[in-house]
Every structure is written in structure tokens, then in C-alpha cells.
Design a protein around this nucleic acid. Structure first.
Length: 858
RNA sequence: GCCUGGGUGGCGGAAUAGGUAGACGCAAGGGACUUAAAAUCCCUUGGGGCUUUGUCCCCGUGCGGGUUCGAUUCCCGCCCCAGGCACCA
């Protein structure tokens, strides 16, 4: 009988669906386990990254179910976003239609992979029944000041035709359009106050032992907490003070000038009417015109101009000039810095360039510094000089003393600063959840009344050919009446960042149809938090940080009690493949290469690096093709076997074939021995075994132990699979061996075969289901209890003892397991080879390690 | 520069509590079956050495030290690679 994956896989998929095998409800009598993989954007078809991610999740879900947990394993669609708009323009269709078509296609593919999702909980975030609750939460946040609007400088991506959050800018470029430089634009934008939760999120980062350290490190880094002080510099010719944030208040006596960011809100007012006004305005304009990439690049020179204004150094009383400088960040600290050229390298270079004064205020412990001969800033520890009452103090000690001194004089105060900024969620896009706000000339900004929710995104409009949002051009959408005064008013036409939807979808899965609010508290309390979350590392900051924030907001609004959404996080590696490059034609598809030559020009093809699969590198493998050729089980098997989940996976067609071969071997092992195996009962330990049968029985239980441990504690499916491979190799050896195959022997084989099938079932659920039925069982494997290791089976009557002399392996002997340390030692010293290496040297000491190893030291 | 990982055969990777380095698989080579090929099955496969081809000897987990009877594993110093952050005051 031939192994025909296409036939058996679709057959079982249909049965599972018909029997609602994956449906789950709340069961207070059972321990819950919430397993979640990051839901996909419905781009059209699944890619290998999805396949890997969801296969890993499926193994865990099936395993947890088999050990008796009540497993929630849902799937849905992160369905808002820009690609739908672009595709709609290109194909002259509508984003909604495009999106729902894609969802249907991808759902079919996921089902074809045999994933155990409870599809009854499926939803798409572009459904008003989903985003209406997001709008409600937005209104509640607005009420509490957690959502606010302000005019400020924001990141703008021309390709997106929209504002981006800081988290969505990578190296000065858009995270979705890595070729697109981000520019800074001044505009009105909505923000969520994630900074209110910075401290709590940071603190809890030490309480997430189930998260990879590098993700936590990235988040801590992103939050960027630093201790320092605000220092007030009185402005000359005014009652105002200029506040700066510094972590180096110990150097305040050396502050010889101030620098403002070009975006600083007070700057324009400061220079009004001064002779320098024009030059300063020109400088501001020039700096703002630069894209973020250029502006923050290493090679961009530090530049600035004098503003014409002065302030007083609050501790020395000296008059010092105020500059505006391109390297000062407007949204870190106060947007202005005190410059201490002697002890900060940037300030040093700036001062040298513009001839500004230097004053040493910290000297090294062993020598003096002279500002006239310094060639770089002194940034090490040292002793304070030129610092009034603080002279002679160690600078680290002076940090506190000076802060306290400033505080006592009303010149400043100690503070903590975070790099994290509020989350900008306004998007000038169409395909997103509308922000439920109305602008009225009389009443100002008015929230949409809760009863009027949802503010539905109109589906009957045409996309604009240039790519911008049609909403601001659609009177039927934006024209409305003010809920307060009933006068004419205008709706907000910005939509929300799609990361808002993904910040709480995992809670909605607990109660996807709940229609009285965003969250059915009772059901959410049963399921939350997510016990195991699995997804790509690329969301280390973005989605994972936003979700930790949003979950806390929902907690504080009383919807749930959990603070952290995801107890354990697994970030799987990328799926990679080697690239092929022609010197003339660039990257080539595999079918464009023949015998190492380019089929277009005949030149030798260079085998490139193994990198993440991407269309542009032409090294993608379509999962559908793999399924069609080998079946879903083979694809699942390869994804799990080739590497542990957190590492990158190198795609190898030969590896896939190896997986397919293994499944064929398994298939033939069962089908070719079915008659004999079916004729006997499964070995249950009632009769003593010896020889090869005893050894096979032991191997069976060793496999149970190893597979269970590898899945339960490590998620190392590659070693779990290899343990079953070893078992199957041993079954085959046993069958080909000389020993008499009596009923007892066959019953041991039956135990070994059935155990292999059960152990493999989370990995390759279709073939195992089919074989299970052939072996005469009723019911689904998912409902079969996970096998238990019998420790008695593991016992060995003989043990291999490794014999070392001076730490080098010299011999191996087999001894009865009953031998005690003394007997083992005697046997070791009596061994011929040990004797040879010991020779006539005196034995200094003999180490015996628990029935495993002896080391004779001479 | 800072942070976090990581460096083991031709390759992907094992070695989970300091105790047999290289499990399992891929590739390669040899053999069986076949008219032949494919498929399948069996064997070999870290490197080197040999006046003994062996239950032989030496070397070997990025490099250099250390701790230990014993180190891929622990400690110190360095090198390299990947990812993240980076004018953060």
C-alpha cells in the first residue's frame, strides 16, 4: 500500500472539521492552556514564515491537549493596513473585497496544513464588530487623558502618505518601506500615553522569566530610563528660565553654552526681532528639510548658529550664549541641553568649531587638565575643580550633592527621564479604524457618544489614484452634526495605527462574539493571560511593547485583571535559503539556473549567502507547492526537524525529501507488519522480557521520556523527532534480527510502533491518524492520552562503564547494574587496558561516578 | 561605542546537573537488488599517524590562560559572526 499524503490529509482534515474536534469552551474543571501564534496580515497566501510559526504552535497545542489541558488555540486576521489600499488601486478593486478574498484563500491554506484552530473564534480586525470596541476603548482613554491630540513634529513616510510612530522608524527609514527616508513634519496628531506606563512596563521586564532575554533587553533599551536632573537657566532679558535635562549635573559649573533643538517650541519666540532671526530661521528650515536618515547619520556634521540670546549659568552666574544645533533632539528631555565641552565629546567638537569657551571642572585622579591643550573631552571619573563648594569631591558623589544643592536654591531638581515617547496613532489612511472624534467650531473636540459607535468606515468609496486617503474628500463621511450643540461639525478623518488592533486581539479571542462590550470579563478571566505566545522577533518592540501597554490600560479600565498579556514568549527564527546570483542578471530564480550557469546568458552563477526568504532575493519557496508535492505532514516535519525553533531555519529541498522518506518508512513499517501486529495485544509488562525485546521495550520508554521532556520543557522538536527516529530504527533492526518472533515479541513491537505513532502525532497529525485507525483504534489521536514513561522499563541489568586513566577514555566495560561503587572500582582496576595504561605507576586516586564512569589517577 | 545572542565534522544540528564529543538527518563514497535507471535496503564517513591496520596511538568543540581527577559545559582575557540600539545630553 502506497503512502498517499494528499488523500489521507484531506480526508482527516474534513473529519476533524465535521466533528468540530478543535472547538473549545471554558471548562472550570480543567486546567486551561492558551496557546497563540501571532495572527497574520492577509496578504494573499501564506509564506514559509507562517508555516514554521504555526507548525511550532500546533505541535504545542496538540501536545497540551493530549496531556489533558483545555487548550485555546485561535486564529484570525490582522486585516487593516496599507497593502490593501495599494492593491485596491493597482487592481481596481476595493480594499475590503481584496482583504476578504485573501482571508478566504489563506484560511484554506491553513486548513490544508492541518492546524488545530478553533475556527469558531475567527475574526478579522477590519470588521466593525471588532473595531467598534477599539473605538469605545479609545473614548475611555480620551476621558482619562490617555488619548490626546497635539500639534507636534512627527515622522512622515511619503510612501505610506502617513505619519509613523517612533517605533515604526528604523534607522531613519520606514519599517514597511526600507528604501523610504522618513521626514519630520509639524502636524496635529493623536497620541496614546504609553509614557504613563513606562516605569511599570520597565519594572515588569524583570518579572517575565518566560521571555527571551534579548527581547526584554531591547524593550528596556527602548524605554531608556536615565537618572539625572532638570536644571533651570535664567534667560537674560526676561523672567523666563530655560530648562535642560542632564545626567551630568556634576559638570554644571563647566556649562559654557546652551543648545536648542531646531524644533524647540520656544525658539521662534526667543529670536523675534533680533538681527540673528533670519539666519536662525534659515538654519531651522534647512535642518527640518533633512530627512531623518541624513540628520542622524554618523557622517552628518554637528552644526549650529548663535540665537542672539543669552542665559545665566545658575551656579556660576556667568552669562552664556544660546545656540540652536542640529544634533539636539527635540523630543528627548526638554529639547534643550547644557553644553559642557570639556566633559562631553559632542560639546567639545561644537565648541572648537565655533570658538566657544571651555572650562575644566573634573580632573583625573592622577594629573591636571588644561583646557588650552585638551584634544578631546575628558569623560572618565575624577575630582571636581572650578566648582565652588564642590571642589575636591569625587564626581560620582557630587551628582547627588549638586542635585540637592540646585533643589535647595530652586534652580532645578532631580528627575528620571525616559527615551520612550507617547505612541502616535494617527494615520492619514483609509483602511483603518476611524478615530471616533468630531470637531465642532463651537464646542471644539467632541468625542462621538458611545451609543453612536461604531463609526463605520464607509465601503462604497473610490480609492484615490495618488494613494492618499479618500476620507477627507468624502463629505458623506466627514460631514456630521455636533453631538453637543447639534450644529454642523466635521469628523476626524485619520484612522488608527493598525498596531492598535493587534494590541488586544488576543483578549477578544476569549469572547469573539460578545456584543455588550469589548471583553466578556468572565471568559477573559478564564483564558487570560496567554500561556504561550509564538511569533517573529521583528515585533520585539512594536507589537509586543504596545500589547503590554494596552493590556494595562484595559486592566485600569476594569476589563481584565491581568497586567502582562503573554506569560511565555517564543520568538522563532527566520526561514532562510541560499541565493543564486548571475554577474549580469542579478538574483536568479532556481529555474533560471541550469548546471551552475545562468540560463539567460550562460555565465557562471555565484551561490550567494543564505538569507531570509524574500521576493527581491528570489529565494522564496512557496508552501503550497511543497504541500502539493509532499503533503502537509512532510512540510511540518521538515520545519521542526531542521533546527530548534529559536534558530534560523535553512530551507533544503534535500532535507524535505529526507522528511518525506522518513514518513514513508513509518508508513511501510506499519502497513507491512499490520497482520502480525494486529494479531497480538499491546505489551503491558505482564511477562518478563529479555534480549532484544527487552531492549526494544526500553528504547520505547526512553523515547517517551525524551519526547515528553523535549516538548514540555524546551520546545526542541528536532531532538524529539530524532528520538522517535532512533526508536523506529531499532524496531526495524529488531524485525530484521535473528530472534524468534513469538507472540510476546510481536506485542513488544506493537507497543513500540503504537508509541511511535502517538509520539509523532502532534508533529504529523494526518499520517499518524491514518495509521492509528489501521492499527484498529477508534477515536482521534488528539483525544488519546499522552503516553507515560514506565521507569521500570528504563532499568538496565547491565551498564556500560567508561574507564578513564588520567581523564582519558581508555576502555569500556559492561557490568551488572547491581554492582556497587567498590565492585565497579575493582573491575576497572582489573581491566587489561586500564592495567596497561597504569603500568607500574602508583594509583593516586580512583573516582567512581554513579554507575557510569571510573577515572583512575596515577 | 553599548546591549543581547552565538562560534562543535563537507552541511543542518546533538551532548538538558562538569563525566563516552559528533545522536538524528542531509550530502558523499562503496555494496546489494535491477537488463538498466529510479526507488529501496546494507556498510563506511572529524583530522592525522603507524615497523604492529589494532578492543592501536596522537590531535580535535573560535584563540590564550585558569579551576578540576576530568571542561563543548564553569571562571578570566581576547578574536570573529549575527541581531538590536545608537548625536539619548
Amino acid at each position: 500500500m502506497k503512502y498517499q499524503p494528499q488523500v489521507i490529509e484531506t480526508k482527516w482534515q474534513e473529519r476533524w472539521e465535521k466533528e468540530k474536534l478543535f472547538k473549545v469552551g471554558e471548562d472550570p474543571g480543567k486546567e486551561k492552556y492558551y496557546l497563540l501564534e501571532m495572527f497574520p496580515y492577509p496578504s494573499g497566501k501564506i509564506h514559509m514564515g507562517h508555516v514554521r510559526n504555526y507548525t511550532i504552535g500546533d505541535v504545542v497545542a496538540r501536545y497540551k491537549r493530549m496531556i489533558g489541558k483545555n487548550v485555546l488555540h485561535p486564529m484570525g486576521w490582522d486585516a487593516f493596513g496599507l497593502p490593501a489600499e495599494n492593491a485596491a488601486i493597482e487592481n481596481n478593486t476595493h480594499p475590503a473585497k481584496w482583504t476578504y478574498n485573501n482571508i478566504a484563500a489563506m484560511k484554506k491554506q491553513l486548513q490544508r496544513m492541518g492546524f488545530s484552530y478553533d475556527w469558531d473564534r475567527e475574526f478579522a480586525t477590519c470588521d466593525p464588530e471588532y473595531y467598534r470596541w477599539e473605538q469605545l476603548v479609545f473614548l475611555k482613554m480620551y476621558e482619562r487623558g490617555l488619548a490626546y491630540k497635539k500639534r507636534t513634529f512627527v515622522n512622515w513616510c511619503d510612501k505610506c502618505q502617513s505619519v509613523l510612530a517612533n517605533e515604526q522608524v528604523e534607522n531613519g527609514r520606514c519599517w514597511r518601506h526600507t528604501e523610504q527616508e522618513v521626514t519630520i513634519k509639524e502636524m496635529d496628531s493623536w497620541f496614546l500615553k504609553i509614557t504613563d506606563y513606562a516605569e511599570e512596563i520597565l519594572e515588569y521586564s524583570d518579572k517575565l522569566p518566560g521571555w527571551p532575554e534579548r527581547v526584554l533587553a531591547m524593550q528596556r533599551n527602548w524605554i531608556g530610563k536615565s537618572y539625572g536632573a532638570i536644571i533651570k537657566f535664567p534667560l537674560v532679558g526676561s523672567d523666563e528660565v530655560i530648562e535642560v535635562f542632564t545626567t551630568r549635573q556634576d559638570t554644571v559649573y563647566g556649562a559654557t553654552f546652551l543648545c536648542f533643538a531646531p524644533e524647540h517650541p520656544k525658539l521662534k519666540e526667543l529670536i523675534k526681532g533680533l538681527p540673528q532671526e533670519k539666519v536662525v530661521l534659515e538654519f531651522i528650515e534647512k535642518t527640518l528639510r533633512m530627512d531623518s536618515y541624513m540628520r542622524t547619520a554618523d557622517y552628518t556634521e554637528k552644526e549650529g548658529v548663535f540665537t542672539g540670546r543669552y542665559c545665566l549659568n545658575p551656579v556660576t552666574g556667568e552669562q552664556i550664549p544660546i545656540y540652536v544645533a542640529n544634533f539636539v533632539l527635540f523630543d528627548y528631555g526638554t529639547g534643550a541641553i547644557m553644553a559642557v565641552p570639556t566633559h562631553d565629546q559632542r560639546d567639545f567638537e561644537f565648541a572648537k568649531k565655533y570658538g566657544l569657551p571651555l572650562r575644566v571642572v573634573i580632573k583625573p585622579f592622577d594629573r591636571d587638565l588644561d583646557e588650552r591643550t585638551m584634544t578631546e573631552a575628558y569623560v572618565e571619573e575624577g575630582i571636581l575643580v572650578n566648582s565652588g563648594p564642590f571642589n575636591g569631591m569625587k564626581n560620582l558623589e557630587a551628582l547627588d550633592s549638586i542635585a540637592e544643592y540646585l533643589e535647595s536654591k530652586g534652580l532645578g531638581y532631580k528627575t528620571v527621564n525616559y527615551r520612550l515617547r507617547d505612541w502616535g496613532i494617527s494615520r492619514q489612511r483609509y483602511w483603518g479604524a476611524p478615530i471616533p472624534i468630531i470637531y465642532c467650531d463651537n464646542c471644539g473636540t467632541v468625542p462621538v457618544p458611545e451609543d453612536d459607535l461604531p463609526v463605520v468606515l464607509p465601503l462604497d468609496l473610490d480609492m484615490r489614484p495618488n494613494g492618499g486617503s479618500p476620507l477627507p474628500f468624502e463629505p458623506s463621511f466627514y460631514e456630521t452634526t455636533c453631538p453637543k450643540c447639534k450644529g454642523k461639525a466635521r469628523r476626524e478623518t485619520d484612522t488608527m495605527d493598525t498596531f492598535v488592533e493587534s494590541s488586544w486581539y488576543f483578549i477578544r479571542y476569549a469572547c469573539p462574539n460578545y456584543d455588550k462590550g469589548p471583553i466578556d470579563k468572565e471568559r477573559a478571566e478564564y483564558w487570560m493571560p496567554v500561556d504561550q505566545y509564538i511569533g517573529g522577533i521583528e515585533h520585539a518592540i512594536l507589537h509586543l511593547l504596545y500589547s503590554r501597554f494596552y493590556t494595562r490600560v484595559l486592566r485600569d479600565l476594569g476589563y481584565i485583571s491581568a497586567s502582562e498579556p503573554f506569560t511565555n514568549l517564543l520568538t522563532q527564527g527566520m526561514v532562510c535559503k541560499e541565493t543564486q546570483e548571475c554577474p549580469e542578471h542579478g538574483y536568479l530564480y532556481p529555474e533560471e539556473v541550469k548546471d551552475g550557469k545562468c540560463t539567460l546568458c550562460g555565465k557562471d552563477v555565484i551561490i550567494g549567502n543564505t538569507v531570509k526568504m524574500s521576493k527581491s532575493k528570489k529565494n522564496v519557496v512557496d508552501p503550497q507547492k511543497m504541500i502539493d508535492t509532499y503533503g502537509a505532514d512532510t512540510v511540518r516535519m521538515f520545519c521542526l526537524f531542521a533546527a530548534p525553533p529559536e534558530k534560523d531555519l535553512e530551507w533544503s529541498e534535500q532535507g524535505v525529501e529526507g522528511a518525506f522518506r522518513f514518513l514513508n518508512r513509518l508508513w511501510h513499517l506499519v502497513t507491512e507488519n499490520l497482520e502480525e501486529v494486529s494479531a497480538v495485544p499491546i505489551y503491558a509488562g505482564e511477562r518478563a522480557l529479555n534480549g532484544a525485546a527487552r531492549s526494544l521495550h526500553r528504547k520505547t520508554h526512553q523515547a517517551i521520556k525524551k519526547v515528553t521532556n523535549d516538548i514540555e520543557n524546551r520546545f526542541h522538536f528536532n531532538t524529539a523527532i530524532s528520538a522517535v527516529m532512533e526508536l523506529i530504527n531499532e524496531i526495524n533492526q529488531f524485525l530484521h534480527g535473528d530472534e524468534v518472533k513469538d507472540e510476546l515479541a510481536w506485542s513488544v513491537v506493537r507497543e513500540a510502533i503504537e508509541t511511535s505513532v502517538v509520539l509523532l502525532s502532534p508533529v504529523v497529525p494526518h499520517i499518524t491518524e491514518e495509521l492509528w485507525r489501521m492499527l484498529g483504534h477508534e477515536g482521534f489521536l488528539l483525544d488519546h492520552p499522552w503516553p507515560k514513561c514506565d521507569d521500570k522499563a528504563l532499568e538496565e541489568e547491565k551498564r556500560l562503564i567508561v574507564l578513564q586513566v588520567n581523564g582519558k577514555v581508555r576502555s569500556r566495560i559492561e557490568l551488572p547494574a547491581s554492582c556497587n561503587d567498590k565492585e565497579i572500582e575493582e573491575a576497572a582496576l582489573a581491566d587489561q587496558r586500564v592495567k596497561r595504561f597504569v603500568g607500574d605507576k602508583p594509583v593516586k586516586k580512583v573516582y567512581v561516578v554513579k554507575k557510569k564512569l571510573v577515572n583512575v589517577v596515577v
